[in-house]
């Protein structure tokens, strides 16, 4: 689905729309402008990489898209919901239902087993136990870990942990998967496996936003947004997105 980057106001099929988003932190007597007017619109089933050097506002943008933070000014709508002035509880519900996070450090709960980790979003979403377990198992099956349900995170390899995290991100069928340096803590081969998994999710209709500073990772996306000094420096289609070589054990089919 080709998307012209400068088309604003929002597209019909837009999943999320940010308009003139400003984020200012007050540090002592100084004001730090992390984002100074970012407008961007991302459509359904887009595969977007957000790039930029550290200090570019990339993390701040990710936090706002992920509803972990709210803009100082400007508007943000996700799945048709205006996020800007939601309460903490409403933001939690939005994160729960609309966003699947994949973190660089996996962020699994160490004491809980694999199944419980994947169940967590469903628990907070109030899904009943039987349905929860069925959905969690299905998600774990999609990332090829259905034989690791009772393992604790520390009994898994880094790649396996990240696959658990991906299963957890997609278990509640979110509007977007927000992956923050998903391969940053993995060796390049394992990283490729994870990228392939995200590629497959995208191929199956998932909207994916990838935050990274690595060009070869960003190259998987079909659109790259580059930030610098709190503004969008460029926003362009990627001509020939890289698709990871199929690793044989990956099973990502609906």
């Amino acid at each position: 689905m080709p998307v012209a980057p400068k088309v604003l106001p929002e597209l019909e099929s837009a999943v999320l729309v940010l308009r003139d988003v400003v984020k200012t932190y007050v540090m002592g007597s100084e004001e730090v402008h992390a984002l100074s007017g970012v407008s961007v619109s991302i459509g359904k089933n887009e595969y977007v990489a957000i790039m930029g050097p550290s200090g570019s506002g990339k993390s701040t943008l990710m936090n706002i898209i992920g509803c972990l933070d709210v803009p100082t000014s400007g508007s943000y709508s996700l799945g048709g919901e205006m996020v800007a002035d939601k309460s903490e509880t409403e933001l939690a519900d939005i994160r729960n239902r609309l966003i699947g996070f994949v973190f660089q450090t996996f962020n699994l709960i160490p004491r809980a087993d694999v199944l419980h980790n994947v169940e967590l979003p469903l628990i907070y979403g109030g899904v009943n136990k039987a349905k929860r377990i069925a959905l969690a198992k299905e998600a774990l099956d999609r990332v090829g870990l259905s034989d690791r349900l009772t393992h604790k995170p520390n009994e898994l390899s880094g790649g396996q942990r990240q696959r658990v995290a991906i299963a957890r991100a997609l278990v509640f069928d979110p509007s977007i998967i927000l992956a923050d340096e998903p391969t940053g803590n993995l060796d390049s081969r394992t990283g490729e496996e994870i990228m392939q998994m995200l590629d497959d999710l995208h191929a199956n209709g998932q909207t994916i936003i990838l935050v990274t500073h690595e060009d070869n990772i960003a190259a998987h996306a079909s659109r790259a947004i580059v930030l610098r000094d709190g503004r969008i420096e460029s926003d362009a289609q990627v001509e020939n997105p890289v698709r990871a070589a199929r690793a044989e054990h990956t099973v990502l089919a609906h």
Binding site: L68, N96, I109, L120, P121, Y124, G125
Partner: peptide
């Protein structure tokens, strides 16, 4: 982590 997954303050 729990908050990112949708845990409300009251949870």
């Amino acid at each position: 982590i729990r908050k990112s997954l949708g845990a409300r303050p009251k949870d």
